[in-house]
Amino acid sequence: MATAGVGAALLDKENVGALGGKALEGKGALGKRPLESGSGGADAKLPRKSALQPLSANVVAGSAGSAHSGSAAKPLSSAAGSMGPPPPRAATSGRGASEAGAVPAARERPASGGAAAARRWQLTDFDIGKPLGRGKFGNVYLAREKKSMYIVALKVLFKNQLQQSNVEHQLRREIEIQSHLRHPNILRLYGYFYDSNRVYLILEYAARGELYKELQRAGSFDERRTATYIASLAKALIYCHSKHVIHRDIKPENLLLGLNGELKIADFGWSVHAPNSRRKTLCGTLDYLPPEMVEGSYHDSAVDVWSLGVLCYEFLYGQPPFEAAGHSETYKRILRVDLRFPADPARSDGAKDLIKRLLVKKPADRLPLEQVLQHPWIQANADPAVLARAT
């Protein structure tokens, strides 16, 4: 695909489809916990790393050739505006000036239903603040929409890196799925736009950052906090599955915390919209892979139930349940469902019972998400406000 073609391809919803079984270089078949051969041999596993690392560069710096390279970045703090969605505009935004000629500031297209015209987003609509994180394909920045003063997170993806890793179709699918989801425990994708070099995603700002870093600092979470997170995730996944969306990569690195500590699913890069509910692509992260994926069998939404069990274990004990010295040994433990509960930290029988009901080899025998919310341990420990919420 030509350099200018990534943004245009985002508009082609007919191209949004399955991965077709192809492993992606960007995340790899095993996700963001990289596996490589090292001093320990072919099965050696590298230390686990956070999906986002600190940045010192600014999005505006070094942007020669961009339509907005002359825009000056302004200092910005999270307190400098209201957190929330920017005013609605056309969801599929136009090219930057360097790609399609000069774009007038008032360029508009009629909105649906005869409503007032909605101008397309561009980088000059935002004040760019501090970097929030970095990934393989680009960076995330704190940003403020100038007119409304709303605080958002601006994810900047570099087209050449997307093309080199052949993941344009994955980005299209991620945008198509996440932009249509509305749930308090799912990070909102408000819109996107692009120029000749980059694609920009306008995302909800999660003020308290990555859950994985919080887990690293704490070592593990207590039962009340864990139960609240699991109940929140169960509700979010029930919602996703009702929309025929399978997430397929639930793990701490893909979860953020909102201003009040509420959990947000933030990464839908491996998600699929699968009305037939049968997929065969190996994807996700090694420690979270369910047995059916390890075996190369067809899988359905029950993979998210398995991941919820792994997550519950990791929250309570500080490490995944099937972790081993090498990834081949991890595969074996997953296939055997070799579940062991360490004596330290001490956890209740109720917590262990829920985990054992979720980590079941046969997908059909895993505890349904609706019953997760009714489990006695969840009922006794989760925040009542979360349990009482309709969704």
Rank of each mutant, 00 (worst) to 15 (best):
I186W: 04
S220H: 14
Y190Q: 08
R278N: 13
Y288A: 00
A218D: 15
A236T: 10
V272M: 14
D222V: 00
D287A: 00
T226P: 07
E262W: 01
Y192V: 04
S271N: 12
L237V: 14
L257R: 03
N276E: 15
Y190R: 06
L215N: 09
A207S: 15
N260H: 10
G209I: 12
R224T: 12
I250K: 11
G261W: 01
A227P: 08
C283E: 09
R225C: 10
I250R: 07
I230D: 10
D195P: 07
A227Q: 03
A231S: 08
L286Q: 04
N260M: 04
T226M: 02
A231N: 02
L263M: 12
S196D: 12
V245A: 06
A231W: 03
N197D: 11
P252E: 10
R217T: 15
N197F: 06
N185E: 13
L259F: 04
R248F: 08
N185H: 14
D249H: 00
A231M: 05
I250M: 15
L259V: 09
D287R: 00
S242P: 12
G219C: 04
L233V: 02
R188C: 07
N185T: 12
L187M: 15
R224Y: 09
A236D: 11
Y229M: 13
G258T: 05
A207P: 10
E253K: 01
A218P: 06
Y190C: 05
V272C: 13
L282M: 09
A206N: 09
I265S: 06
I246A: 12
D287C: 00
D287Y: 00
G191L: 05
V272N: 13
S220E: 10
R198Y: 09
Y194E: 12
I186T: 10
L286K: 03
W270C: 14
D267P: 06
W270V: 12
L289Q: 05
E214R: 06
G261N: 08
I238Y: 07
G261L: 03
L255F: 04
D249L: 00
L237A: 05
R188D: 13
D287L: 00
R208S: 15
G284R: 08
I238V: 12
L203V: 10
S220D: 08
L211R: 07
L237K: 03
H247C: 07
R225N: 08
Y190H: 10
S277E: 15
E223R: 03
D249R: 00
K235Q: 14
A231K: 01
A218H: 08
L233A: 01
A266C: 04
I265C: 05
L257P: 14
L256N: 07
K280N: 12
I186C: 09
E262S: 13
L201D: 02
N197G: 09
N197I: 09
R188M: 07
G219I: 02
A274I: 13
A206L: 03
E214T: 14
E223Q: 05
E253W: 02
D249N: 03
N260C: 05
V199P: 02
Y200H: 04
E253P: 04
E210M: 00
K251M: 07
H273Y: 15
N276D: 15
F193W: 08
C283P: 06
H241W: 05
S242A: 05
L255I: 13
R208T: 14
